[in-house]
């Protein structure tokens, strides 16, 4: 079992923290936007849809640069957040989390949307004729039936966040201990002579984490699917 240097350990731990925060913070807004896009009819729906899915098709560097423009210390949103709440994204691990969240968001929303569309509206009608307020219908019928999609989307966006590189390095650079995530560290090691063994070790970890996430996702999907009951 090859051991990691403290520097490599820091990168792995940072990556996990960034990906975890990015995913957890995305859940509620992701659910809201997925519900809006699936169920609501409103002016500007296509525009919202476009904004959410743009990071999926834009070059990550472009997304990172846009984040820098908006959330940098002098950016309109960045300055406001720093002055009002003291939240700073630029060149901090929080910025790496933001970049990862934005990049993973389309995957999360897409998975949630698919699972909302798969929920039988008839069951929601049945629940409301039984006296359930719309909020209760959502909590007791819609949400549980969406669960496999939510779990799949969460794990997918977590894996995406673990691997985020382009937008992160553009937005918050590559500062060891602060913004140097697993992919940034691998990139750095490949750029210095004799860095290959370290790059190799980190690559093995990246593969293991991603594989583990996929296996867990599938296992949870199976268990939840069985609980919900496959209507014969």
């Amino acid at each position: 079992m090859p051991t990691l240097t403290p520097e490599e350990m820091t990168a792995v731990r940072l990556s996990l923290r960034v990906a975890l925060w990015a995913t957890v913070a995305s859940l509620a807004p992701g659910l809201l936007i997925a519900m809006l896009l699936s169920r609501a009819k409103f002016w500007g729906r296509s525009i919202l849809n476009g904004i959410v899915f743009l990071p999926l098709v834009l070059p990550p560097v472009v997304t990172g640069f846009i984040l820098l423009l908006l959330f940098g210390r002098r950016g309109p949103i960045g300055a406001f957040l720093a002055d009002t709440f003291g939240i700073v994204f630029a060149f901090r691990w929080t910025g790496a989390a933001l970049a990862s969240a934005v990049m993973g968001f389309p995957l999360l929303v897409r998975a949630m949307q698919l699972s909302i569309d798969a929920v039988d509206r008839g069951l929601e009608d049945a629940a409301s004729t039984l006296g359930a307020h719309p909020v209760w219908v959502f909590l007791t019928v819609t949400l549980p039936l969406m669960l496999p999609g939510i779990i799949a989307g969460t794990i997918l966006s977590f894996a995406r966040a673990m691997g985020e590189f382009g937008a992160t390095i553009t937005f918050v650079s590559n500062i060891p201990g602060e913004t140097q995530t697993l992919p940034s560290a691998i990139y750095t090691f490949t750029q210095i002579p004799g860095g290959e063994p370290a790059a190799f070790r980190l690559t093995a970890i990246a593969v293991a984490v991603s594989m583990f996430a996929l296996l867990v996702s599938e296992a949870i999907g199976r268990v939840v699917g069985r609980r919900i009951g496959v209507e014969a």
């Binding site: 008839g122 069951l123 049945a126 019928v141 549980p144 039936l145 609980r227 919900i228 209507e231």
Partner: peptide, 12 residues
Amino acid sequence: GYIFQEGRLFPH
């Protein structure tokens, strides 16, 4: 109370 043609029991 509404009894639907397809029952519409909550599968979960």
